[in-house]
Amino acid sequence: MRLLLLGGTDFGGRAIAEAARDRGWEVTVFHRGEHPPPPGVAVLHGDRTAPDGLAALAAGEWDAAVDTWTSAPRVVRDAARLLAGRVGRYAFVSSRSVYAWPIPAGLDEDGPLADGDPDAEATDYAADKRGSELAAVREFGAERTLLLRAGLILGPRENSGRLPWWLERVSRGGPVLAPGPRDTPLQYVDARDLAAWTLDALKTGLHGAFNVVSPTGHTTMGELLDACVDATGSDAKLVWTDPAAIEAAGVAAWSDLPIWCPPGGELHDALHRGDVSRVLAAGLRCRPVAETVGDTWAWLRSLSPASESA
């Protein structure tokens, strides 16, 4: 397989590039050069937002392309239009944010969607991702387009700072506010599991939309934080706290306390209770939370001497 990664040098895109390389695929990454590419891949440079920024893609053929773009849909439109005659399949890494808000618990891929314009400039995240989906489908056709509606993505190289936030806090030890209940179910996908499923899906010719995230309750808030304590080896003591007390203190779910949302609420329903029967039937496998947490901590410790002594 010849694979083109639009991006492919940071977090999720890099996980896909490395997984494809390790399978023996011929991998080309097209990026601006802000991050070093993975070893063993071909590299093309360009800025997709600049005039003539796609010039490096004017020639070449690939069996599949993966696009992780997160802003103006017209950028996906332009790349997909340029590549449609020279790439077999187009996978766009979208988001479950494309569903119309509020997103009810148990919503599958056929739920109502946010508005999106495939020719638009950047507006907001949900509209941008939905517009980009529409752009990819319009240029490649539904039978050649794979839409990965990812949920929360965790793992080594995470650049959103959610799991790293908890690991750094737990590593400092002492009493740690643990937002309850302890058995609050979580839904996420390790970037490496997302990568493996994406490559399998491209190889077998899957198309259409898939909610690419674990089953709800693949882990819980308690299991996640216990894994953080175990991975860091700290003397942290988890102090489980009722959601009402957290709210009364003015601490915001998700933003102030990453990953966590109180169960039964609108935000938890949207982020941690999506239907994933379609992607599970198509072969998604999710590694244990302890592995995701441990590998993320090992990556954090590799970044600097300061993190090694944490």
Rank of each mutant, 00 (worst) to 15 (best):
W197S: 01
D190K: 10
A209E: 09
P179M: 11
H218T: 08
L186R: 06
A196Q: 11
D193F: 07
G173T: 03
A209Y: 03
G205A: 09
E168I: 02
S214T: 05
L163S: 03
R162F: 04
P164F: 11
A196Y: 01
L186I: 09
H207P: 00
L167N: 02
W165A: 14
A195K: 01
P185M: 14
K203N: 11
L177W: 04
V213H: 00
E168P: 00
L199E: 12
P215S: 14
T184W: 10
A201C: 06
H207K: 00
D193Q: 10
R172F: 06
S171I: 02
A178T: 01
W197G: 00
N211W: 10
L186S: 07
G173M: 09
V176Q: 10
W166L: 12
D183H: 15
G205F: 10
T204D: 13
G161I: 10
V212D: 06
L163N: 02
L194T: 00
G174L: 13
G173L: 09
H218Y: 05
T216Q: 15
D200L: 15
T184R: 08
G174E: 12
R172Q: 15
R182V: 03
G205Y: 07
P175W: 03
V170F: 06
R192F: 02
A178Y: 00
D200W: 11
S214H: 05
D183C: 10
A209S: 14
P164T: 11
W166I: 04
P179G: 04
L163D: 03
L199D: 07
L177M: 13
D193S: 08
P185W: 11
T204E: 15
K203D: 15
